[in-house]
Design a protein around this nucleic acid. Structure first.
Lengths: 340, 340
DNA sequence: CAAATTCTGAGGTACGCCCCTCAAAATGTA
DNA sequence: TACATTTTGAGGGGCGTACCTCAGAATTTG
């Protein structure tokens, strides 16, 4: 039988009340006693029964995802996964919710975070830039007893163990390698499209992509990044111009999270499928394009996994546990028509 | 507040005892009463609190993996993940164990399964061929109240919902596509190695691989599969012969689960890395070979995911729940140096 | 109609922990 | 030494469910 708190109390030579105080970090226990209890924990191999602990808490774990108010197809996907998790998690006493942040107004966003109370929230996964206001708001949340982890966007704060996100540089490098290998001995240029080059995602991906191509594929030349601003008309315009100005374009790299528009535009503009096209994120559009051959590969990070991983880590923080590292590593997946 | 069994009893106009009888499928309740309770469940949106239910069971969930006695590097990996899960799962009242089956002797294997009792086991994930003896043993286990799911190997039994396994045909096709694309316009032959062509894994992978190459890459010719029988000396011998007999070998496909020996041998035999080499399963050997460039891609299915998924499904069966389908789909991952 | 059978209700205990109160003991301070 | 303060012990109630017993009610059977 696994040792219980009662066994632990006996082993440590203290009462149940003291064991409880130590286990839950309550005050009013001498250092010496704390040490004695911890020693007993190791000695008898006590491990708190999380099932009983969760039940006794008298309330479900309540977590939230703080996400930007406006986003792309990929963000929608994440929100869907959060809702899905919420439905499935209720029987396990876990509730998750979505909070929208005005990412264009750091003050408002920070204020939104400031209003969150430990009364009705155990932890938050935050997807927001690391501006001073936001970083400050996060620190104050922590003081209030709300656990936080950076989600997708990293705020580079101290104590940010358990970042759940995307390794964009690696994702870009992966795209670069596939582009280089798929093109083989072919020479020519590669057009790169994204919504905006301002975002860190785009910067890092481009960095990874360039690194591989420039080092290993001297036959290929990467053109300056084209910005679509998410506008179909503009996308069509700039892509047509690019294809016209550079007759040797052999590869298309859709670097942004919103590949739908570029894919459609390039379908219209390109009669044949002989250019290698690579995009990011599995969405209905990219999935379909893979099947038809309009895309040759998609670099993907599973949003469901991101969500579940974030919740597991938040919960582990609440329970002073560590998680299975191998389970939390978010994979940079390569999708082709054969393995979607 | 979420409705509890007490609320349900009130809503259905019955006692707690009757609610309990219905929820846990005990006998001695009139059909009419069962219907009334079920109607009330839907009406008030009752959902059993799994945390409380698990605690009240007075014992942990006990699951087992029935695995072949002898296996390859990949099976070792799976066993490691099972042990790991067991350690991490104790706090959640889940215990998992490994049972070894004599896969060469269906009678003995069936007998081993027959000895398992519902007393000390809630469910088993079974990796065994679907021989009549084994299928029969599985059916009798189910009658005894032990939940079962096929694991990796499918026994094709009725009621096998929730197969956790590998889609070998797709994995082979994925390997084929990458081989074709990585080789580009190059012409030549592809050598295929595996431990034994007898296994269904090998058959299906080869089928998928051939399908893609033969349809789309007329410049490539696939040689007959070479069998290593896991013997380094023999591997070296047959690979040297093949490279000698077919000077035009441009691709190597290591189809088996044990790629270590073939990789080492081909390193010795091949001075340059200009042949495309693809293997299955991430292991220390294949990971290292990816980094050094001896392998160009690895097709992988995450063993940790396989294990966790199997446990989740078994547990859901015990609790009459369904699982999140999106979480249980085992991905055919493509690994290259940039995304390991 | 009575007897046998089936169904239901009432009540209890248990799981392992959280969280609370209050008094007693140990320690520190003047 | 007397007092204040800190630390500890003892005990209880609660979470929502599982599982048990036993008596009484409802239903079926002869």
């Amino acid at each position: 039988m696994r040792p219980t708190t009662k066994d632990l109390a006996k082993a440590a030579g203290v009462s149940l009340a003291t064991v409880d105080r130590v286990l839950n970090g309550r005050s009013g226990v001498r250092e010496k006693t704390v040490k004695a209890v911890n020693a007993a924990i190791l000695r008898i191999g006590f491990e708190r029964n999380q099932v009983a602990a969760t039940l006794a808490r008298q309330r479900a774990y309540r977590f939230a995802f703080a996400l930007p108010r406006f986003g792309d197809e990929f963000l929608d996907e994440i929100i869907d996964r959060i809702r899905e998790f919420d439905r499935a998690g209720r029987a396990e006493m876990v509730e998750v919710d979505v909070i929208r942040l005005d990412d264009h107004d750091p003050h408002r966003a920070a204020r939104t975070l400031s209003r969150l109370s430990a009364e009705d929230l155990d932890g938050v996964a935050i997807m927001a830039p690391g501006t001073p206001q936001i970083r400050d708001a996060i620190l104050r949340m922590r003081e209030r007893g709300i656990r936080t982890i950076p989600f997708i966007a990293n705020q580079q704060l101290h104590g940010d163990e358990g970042f759940v996100g995307i390794y964009n540089r690696g994702a870009g490098a992966t795209a670069g390698r596939l582009m280089g290998r798929f093109l083989g001995r072919l020479s020519g240029s590669i057009a790169v499209l994204t919504e905006t080059t301002q975002s860190r995602d785009s910067l890092e991906r481009r960095l990874g992509f360039d690194g591989v191509i420039n080092r290993d594929y001297s036959n290929l030349k990467i053109l300056p990044t084209l910005e679509t601003h998410g506008d179909p008309g503009r996308t069509q315009h700039i892509l047509r111009n690019a294809l016209h100005a550079h007759r040797d374009i052999v590869g298309l790299y859709f670097m942004g999270a919103e590949a739908r528009v570029p894919i459609e535009v390039s379908r219209v503009l390109t009669a044949t499928n002989d250019r290698v096209a690579i995009a990011h994120e599995r969405t209905p559009s990219t999935e379909h394009a893979l099947k038809t051959g309009e895309l040759d590969a998609v670099i993907h990070q599973d949003p469901g996994h991101l969500v579940r991983s974030a919740v597991r880590i938040l919960r582990a923080k609440c329970e002073n546990r560590t998680t299975l590292a191998s389970q939390e590593r978010i994979r940079t997946e390569i999708l082709i028509a054969e393995n979607i």
